[in-house]
Design a protein around this nucleic acid. Sequence first.
DNA 1: CATATCGTAACTTTTTAAGTTACAAATGTG
DNA 2: CACATTTGTAACTTAAAAAGTTACGATATG
Lengths: 153, 153
Amino acid sequence: MRTDSRLARMLHVLLHLEQAKDPITSEQIGQMLATNPSLVRRTMGGLRKAGIVTSVKGHGGGWCLAKPLTQITLLDVYEALGSPGLFALGLSNVTSTCLLEQSANKAIDSALDHASAFFRAELTKQTVADLVLPHAQKVQELKDRQASGHKPV
Amino acid sequence: MRTDSRLARMLHVLLHLEQAKDPITSEQIGQMLATNPSLVRRTMGGLRKAGIVTSVKGHGGGWCLAKPLTQITLLDVYEALGSPGLFALGLSNVTSTCLLEQSANKAIDSALDHASAFFRAELTKQTVADLVLPHAQKVQELKDRQASGHKPV
DNA sequence: CATATCGTAACTTTTTAAGTTACAAATGTG
DNA sequence: CACATTTGTAACTTAAAAAGTTACGATATG
């Protein structure tokens, strides 16, 4: 199948939601993601159940943040999507009685487990708000240079 | 698609190859893996090009180890398979000009990169020979108990 | 020469996220 | 209340890549 881009997409959407004061419709989000509103609703539904966003039906409705981005870790979003399988790599026949096959599977399973834990730790380290810090810093630096009269290189 | 089980399968095969003095045919390997000889040849072809195994055509031919398992790391096998994509997770539209989307992608890309490096480090830590050490140790322990006259619990 | 076996190309199947279509339910507007 | 807007959800199709399959040429043994 295609690689699962739901986490990347949802982070993208959350960053946009923070910048909007009114609810954003699935139609608008669909345009941001170059996809259709129904897929947006399906994917964002997980975030709603996880208490990350809220949705309002009807005229003037749409999607809003349920809490500040500083209170949402990347892991929160990942888990809101159902903690989808991380790896394209897997084991071979796990019901085999061959001891050699079991040994091979065990080694890979262990490596995947460790890598998975490592990845989740990376996701826990930062909130969604942190994602735009590098950008905010660049903007600030630009302002500083202009204020001090230095010309950009 | 299905999860990629080639690494697990190849490790399994290498462990069997070490136990055989004569070449093992693709047909025999196919039975170990519950698949067909052609797929075996396709997958093992990568290991041959990487110098991990050798193949002999014709009557009495088949597959042999090209060097001892102590000289083959799990990473060697993984790379012999073409270093297949590790993750089922990916980025969203990487050509987008939206800065927020770029920020989201960057964060995920970084986390995946780190997790990938971590995984590769895990694969580098052990040779294929190490996979059966736990089993060999258990066998040794069993022998020790029997030799010392203790009854197994 | 007959048989066994690898090497490789071409094709089908499987799996699951993504994508699509459709419509009921709910909410705001006039 | 009638109507347009929007979410919620089910059912279906599409896409991509490993797995699986089929076929056949090349090579080595006896």
